[in-house]
Design a protein around this nucleic acid. Sequence first.
DNA 1: TTGCAGTCGGTACCTGGGTACAGGCTTACC
DNA 2: GGTAAGCCTGTACCCAGGTACCGACTGCAA
Lengths: 127, 127
Amino acid sequence: MTGLRSGQVAAAAGVNPQTLRYYERRGLLPQPDRTLGGHRLYPAETISLLRLIKASQRLGFTLDEVTALLNARGAGMHARAAAKLSEVELKIAELTMIAEALRGAVAASCDDVNTCAADPRCPLPDS
Amino acid sequence: MTGLRSGQVAAAAGVNPQTLRYYERRGLLPQPDRTLGGHRLYPAETISLLRLIKASQRLGFTLDEVTALLNARGAGMHARAAAKLSEVELKIAELTMIAEALRGAVAASCDDVNTCAADPRCPLPDS
DNA sequence: TTGCAGTCGGTACCTGGGTACAGGCTTACC
DNA sequence: GGTAAGCCTGTACCCAGGTACCGACTGCAA
């Protein structure tokens, strides 16, 4: 009966204990062993798995995508990362345009949105 | 009793009619005049106001921020745009690092997340 | 053996930005 | 004046990704 309790795992991975049960329901975490009394006993790898999930989220994957990623093997994984890479590149391009527009708004001394929007030099409406 | 009906305004601004009432509740749109029967009558400016709201959203402002923006005058507006600009620039920087990590993952032939995450060359866990 | 922290399952709630539906009224056109 | 389209209010629901609360039970140490 060895293993980590949910609170320990959650603290080690920097996650709310409720989130463990949530991930289990979503199929991101395998069902752990239990004590005789029904308390969960996690293997130590769960902590790195959680960190992997969080890292993938930071890479812009949704939980559904992470689930697919965790079940993927071989070229599937490769293709998904490549697909996500082009998504991220697209997003960077969009944000770059947005930053341009904002720089324009700052430079144009766009002081009052209402009047500025009426001004043809205002970059807001077309962005 | 002149003015535009909600359906006309919504269609002209490319917005769902329900959204007009939602924005009114949120304080983004002023309360319009009404017909004797209680139907809303919008001034024509409402259409450009809606477009301005949508443009601001595309610039990354939340509806709460747009509300504040619409009520702001002078330097407040300027400062907010500048603040949002640095937020956007930060986000671009984050996404750029993420793209780097993904390129790494693709290049490293990171075929199976589980084994790859255990591999010290895998860029996923630290991102 | 007692006491208390930790955990259990189930359910409800949160944020943001809307969208959908129900049942009734108004407006416009023929 | 009939009829259909449009609009009214109010309420409920959607998405993702959790978080909070409840009353009951377990585990562990003193």
